[in-house]
Simulated assay, not measured.
Amino acid sequence: MTFVLLVLVAAAAGGAVCVVWAERGGPRWVRIVASVTLGIAAVVRGLHRSGRRGGSRSSANSDGDE
């Protein structure tokens, strides 16, 4: 389980490096990896937002006090 987590963290870090490198005009494979990384991030954001529709995660106050 720890190995899987380490691989996921390494992949995310590598994807982030490729996004920055692609913005500076990296090689074609870097731009492809950056596009895939940004696409996966958009899907994850969409899933996160759809999970909030029920209102179960909303907070009544913004202080953090309960």
Score class of each variant (00 low, 15 high):
T2W: 04
V4K: 09
L5E: 09
L5R: 12
L6I: 01
V7T: 11
V7A: 13
L8M: 12
L8V: 02
V9E: 02
V9L: 10
V9W: 02
A10T: 08
A10H: 05
A11V: 13
A11Y: 01
A12Q: 08
A13G: 09
A13R: 09
G14K: 05
G14M: 04
G14P: 07
G15Q: 07
G15S: 07
G15W: 07
G15Y: 00
G15N: 06
A16D: 08
V17P: 03
V17N: 04
V17M: 13
C18H: 13
C18R: 12
V19T: 05
V19E: 06
V20K: 06
V20R: 10
V20D: 10
W21D: 06
A22L: 08
A22Y: 01
E23Y: 11
R24E: 12
R24G: 00
G25Y: 06
G26T: 01
P27V: 14
P27E: 15
R28K: 11
R28M: 10
W29V: 06
W29S: 07
R31Q: 15
I32H: 12
I32C: 01
V33Y: 01
V33W: 01
V33N: 02
V33E: 04
V33I: 13
V33G: 04
V33S: 11
A34E: 02
S35I: 01
S35Q: 08
V36K: 00
V36C: 09
T37S: 12
T37G: 00
L38H: 03
L38K: 00
I40C: 11
A41C: 04
A42P: 00
A42F: 03
V43E: 08
V44W: 07
V44Y: 09
R45I: 00
R45V: 10
G46N: 07
H48W: 08
H48P: 00
R49N: 03
R49G: 08
S50K: 04
S50A: 14
S50F: 12
S50C: 00
G51H: 02
R52L: 06
R52C: 07
R53F: 11
G54D: 12
G54E: 06
G55M: 07
R57T: 15
R57K: 15
S58A: 15
S59D: 11
A60E: 13
N61I: 07
N61L: 03
S62F: 14
S62I: 13
S62T: 13
G64T: 07
G64C: 13
D65G: 01
D65I: 14
E66T: 10
